[in-house]
């Protein structure tokens, strides 16, 4: 298999397989969760579960002051790499073309140099996240193999993407193919790891907000 074969494979069957696993995995997991169901709350409500649930989906993104003070590093680096991922994934022209090809939807891209800079910042943030995870007693205690694996498959597309864009280290088709392959790895592992939080976070925050809101507390 030469590099163009490889590139064609990752752009073709490889991507298809990854998307099938990703889409099927995500949907099965979400259906699996939702079908377990929840008993209705028979206690008299003090507040609106619905309103609070909806609000928490968004409000939980902004940490409350004392929490920010206690977990500053995790929150700041977390914000940086999440926003960085958002920008690099959704606002880079070639990526938008991909989304357009799949969904028909398109939106304006950010200037390439900005995405490039954001990529570097995101990679740095992810390395800091790992360093912190390894040096902080609590996080080291919490960390399992899955955490490391997820970190790896998250940073790989950024690194391979960076190299593919700057075309260093190997020939361009190989770099591009490796980048796409790393994304496919991410897609394949997505439904079976904690990466799933990207989707279930909506449910979790909703439930948390609804449980609290029903009792009259905005969580």
């Amino acid at each position: 298999m030469n590099e163009i074969d490889f590139l064609n494979w990752v752009r073709g069957p490889g991507f298809q397989i990854a998307v099938i696993i990703f889409v099927a995995g995500i949907i099965i997991r979400l259906v699996e969760i939702l079908m377990l169901g929840r008993k209705p709350n028979l206690a008299e409500a003090k507040g609106s579960a619905m309103r609070s649930g909806l609000r928490t989906i968004f409000s939980r993104s902004i940490p409350e002051k004392s929490t920010f003070k206690r977990s500053t590093f995790v929150i700041v680096t977390g914000f940086i790499f999440h926003i960085g991922l958002l920008i690099t994934i959704f606002f880079f022209t070639p990526h938008i073309l991909l989304f357009k090809d799949v969904s028909g939807l398109s939106w304006p891209a950010l200037p390439t140099p900005i995405v490039d800079a954001v990529t570097v910042v995101t990679i740095i943030a992810l390395f800091l996240v790992l360093a912190h995870r390894m040096s902080n007693t609590v996080l080291r205690f919490l960390t399992n193999y899955e955490d490391i694996l997820v970190w790896l498959v998250t940073i790989l597309p950024l690194i391979t993407g960076y190299f593919a864009f700057h075309r260093v280290g190997a020939t361009a088709p190989t770099l591009l193919a490796l980048h796409i392959l790393s994304v496919e790895l991410l897609l394949v592992l997505f439904p079976f790891t904690k990466l799933m939080h990207a989707f279930t976070i909506v449910l979790a925050r909703w439930y948390n907000g609804a449980i609290s809101g029903y009792r009259g507390v905005q969580s």
Partner: peptide, 17 residues
């Protein structure tokens, strides 16, 4: 185990907060 439990465990990212 109900949908809340499943959603919560599915979402934990081991952030330590």
């Amino acid at each position: 185990v109900d949908s809340t439990v499943a959603a919560f465990f599915s979402s934990c990212v081991h952030c330590g907060m």
